[in-house]
Design a protein around this nucleic acid. Structure first.
Lengths: 185, 185, 185, 185
DNA sequence: CACTAACCGAGACGGTACGTCCAGTCTTATA
DNA sequence: TATAAGACTGGACGTACCGTCTCGGTTAGTG
């Protein structure tokens, strides 16, 4: 009944924020400037996201949102595909910073944590689907602990992003998946 | 010739900063408050550390602890021992907070990153040693990628700490190690 | 053919605005809140009054009350009567608040000033009538400057209301009139 | 012991604020702009005055501060002098607006009221001094109610400023004083 | 033993961003 | 048309915190 929110504004804000975040990092994103750049009042931003942090979460959510579930019939290839996708998305330095800020922010604020978890879950679900399919078609062990397997895959990626800072290239993704499938013994 | 610095102040500031950092996170550490709490002038803080970041580096550097390398002759048992140690250490909410802050701090500042890496390296080296021993005595595959293996072990732990928030108990540690050794296929 | 305006809304808005204006002052009257309190859309308010100021003008116009002109034949007694009336009316804290707001509103906006002056003029005319009668019947000096005399009477009252905050009781009214009539020399 | 406040800043801020107030009125005074114009941080303004309102009070206080007590030996001349001073100071439209805002603001806020009263008291004391001298040297009646007399003088001026909007010229001041001294009967 | 350089507390200062508040306008669906 | 609902622009406000600065006063160690 009331005037509906202008969804174009949502998109424009997210796009501009994404760009700025990539270029200038978290502190480089200034709400006042953002609003001016988009041609929108600051209030319009704050009506949608109560906090700069919340906005940043949305930005990343939008990036993550484009996760497709690969389904080639070959479990290994699918796993490589999804891990490669993660690796490519998270490798750039600006992305690493963002993820780190997000992890810290969600450790501080429960409200934010809920948002952030939704965000990771997109890829998590895709990975789980592939693994489940592998178990179903006999490619993977019957008693495979899917949770642990995902921890090992995604964990390895985030570990490099957040802790060691090591590179994330396609080779890494391939080796990681192979290592998971092969066992160390 | 001139009046010497009061070394008690150094210690008191570091201690208070460490406590606050763990409790309230990076943004919760406010130099003004810190100084007042310690009973010291803000100048005294800035005379020692030119920046809040530099102070945080010092705090983190002081957190270095030695990690024992378990050596029972049984590689699996040793891995379980070290992963269990990590899991127990990182499980408490306050530790998760802290790790998240450190990850974010690393991302913001290169100096900080160097310090923080030293922190993680203690455990990292221990894990690497166990894996190397396993390869040497034939328990593990010759062509094992030790880096990737560590990413999978430590990564899984940090992933739960920073991203999913899932529990870290001894069971998890055991299953994780077993999963690494067994392979998924 | 078209839907007619709801005249109940006019009344309800004016009443609520009057109350709020008296209680919380000009800045305390917030159009959004007013509309919500009355159960009316903001549009409904703005369709009737183009501006908050215009609304306030209407509120004030509605406050017009008639002031009786005392006529006992005794000029001093009549003056005391009318000044006492003013003093009693303006003494309460809420009235002082209101008068102050009206004075400020007058200063901000010419339209408002016109309305507010109508308000004051009721009593002003009554006082002028009494003074004129006094001059006519020889009780007061022929060359009395009626304007100035009114400034001295009403001014003293408003001065206490707006500037000094001093009490306004019947004694004050009596002394004031006597002082005017007697001269200081 | 600490770094002392820069009193030049106080003066510069007051001067600039005064000028802007005169030119652009209350709403035209924007703290951000003021600070920039003076070459001072906004915090420096807010350290001295908790609110824009408080600053405005100070500005007017500074204007009023320059009230000299005339002492020519002639009570009537002295009264005319002080009333003329008031009239001249308060006559300009910008000043009328300020006084009105101040009256309203002090009706709203007790803290502010205290400040504002101090302000008016400067002139009030001067007037009282003249009247007391007149009583002492026999120019004025022994039983003169000084309070009431001041209410009549200052009141007439403020009445015109705040209520009727009538002009305040030197003639008015002279007639007013004469009227007070002469009596109406 | 006086001198002197660095230290210390207190807190002012410039600068920058944040999130909030309100007025007045606009848009949609409904009556 | 009028209305409820509420989104929107625009602009100021007051707050928070960082890192720098300027005081008056203190405290070694040197000459």
């Amino acid at each position: 009944m009331a005037r509906p929110r202008n969804t174009d504004s949502d998109a424009a804000i997210l796009t501009a924020a994404a760009e700025t975040l990539q270029r200038d990092g978290y502190d480089g994103l200034i709400v006042d400037e953002l609003a001016r750049a988009v041609g929108v009042a600051k209030t319009t931003v704050y009506r949608r996201w109560p906090t700069k942090n919340h906005l940043v979460v949305s930005v990343i959510a939008a990036w993550q949102g484009e996760v497709a579930v690969p389904d080639s019939g070959d479990t290994e290839a699918d796993l490589v595909a999804i891990v490669t996708g993660m690796a490519r998305a998270l490798d750039p330095a600006s992305m690493r910073r963002l993820v780190a800020e997000l992890a810290a922010a969600s450790a501080r604020d429960a409200d934010l944590r809920a948002q952030v978890e939704l965000l990771w879950n997109a890829r998590r679900a895709a990975t789980a689907a592939i693994l489940a399919r592998g178990v179903a078609d006999g490619t993977l062990r019957d008693d495979l602990d899917v949770e642990i397997a995902m921890d090992q895959l995604a964990g390895a990626v985030y570990y490099r992003v957040l802790i060691t800072g090591a590179v994330l290239n396609d080779d890494f993704a391939r080796t990681l998946v192979r290592s998971l499938l092969a066992g160390a013994r």
